[in-house]
Amino acid sequence: MASPVSTAIPSSQLTVRKPRFRWRDTRDGVLMSAPAIIGLIAFVAVPFITAIVLSLYNVQADMAREPRFWGFTHYIRLFTDPILSGTFLRSLLNNLVFALVVIPVQTGLALVLAVLLNRKLRGMKFFRTFFFMPVVFPMALVAVIWRLILERGDDGLLNASVSVITGGLVPAHDWLGSSATALGSVILLSIWQGVGFQMVILLAALQEIPEERYEAARLDRANGWQQFRHITIPGIRNTLIFVTLLTTILAFRVYDQVYILIRTAGANEEATQTLLYTGTKAIFSENNLGRASAISVVLFVIIVIITLVQRGLLRQRSEG
């Protein structure tokens, strides 16, 4: 294996190169990482740059007309055009509301479940299984199960339950069709599917907190809430921020359930459309690849801003 390759390098190059790099490592390193790097360039970097370029053109999905350079027209129209901006800004708002509701509710619920499961009692693994189970359900299936639960007539499970609880006082409600409850319904089924994921991450963080801290607190006569406030929360602070970051990003990527519920279950389109839904609709219904790309770029910019803000928060807190 004594490689002749390394001796073939001119000595002048060897002195220029930082000594910690080795030629044989470079050959192996490049070969080993090449498949992943080529894949990432081809399927992430190139389409990403393509999105930016296409968003500056008036270009159709089927390329029936010659693409024309449009500058920032798509972006300006998305935000200001009297007809277009309504749909776009509404989908942006829906994403925001989705995020603002799901982050505290889902994270809070996940934390409550994780704290309950963190007690040293029998059968905790059994309960953990139940709470985690929906995570393995594909969103396409979750949407179909829940559209039946939320069905508008008396036949829907939710309406039947409400009727029993209130003794028939409250009439059947169209949960998905009504603009007041449509987004809330989508949020409900999304939380059902996702809460187990956050719970497991938080549970792992809770188990990392040394038991001695709680013992010391109990010696100081700290009550349950004080222990939670001054030991549990600081102990999982970084994980909480991480989970919040993850949930925020997922909230902006919402698509599957919205598409299926609007297309097949009569969900209120205006109240539930998200950025990705509006983007794919621009292609399929309006044949507008340029605008769809502009929406993708806006989605990306939002996610980058959230990531940077929350990374900054993480760094600040852990240094402080």
Binding site: R17, R20, F21, R22, D25, T26, R27, D28, G29, V30, M32, S33, A36, I37, L40, F43, V44, A45, P47, F48, T50, A51, L54, I249, F252, R253, Y255, L276, G279, T280, I283, L289, A292, S293, I295, S296, V297, L299, F300, I303, V304, T307
Partner: peptide
């Protein structure tokens, strides 16, 4: 492995972690 250009390429990978597939799906299509 310690190879030429490793750290620069790695920064690229880290940047790509942020790009959600959903935001490149339409141009990739």
């Amino acid at each position: 492995l310690e190879w030429v250009g490793r750290d620069k390429v790695f920064i690229l990978i880290i940047l790509l972690v942020i790009v959600p597939f959903e935001s490149v799906a339409i141009p990739l299509m």
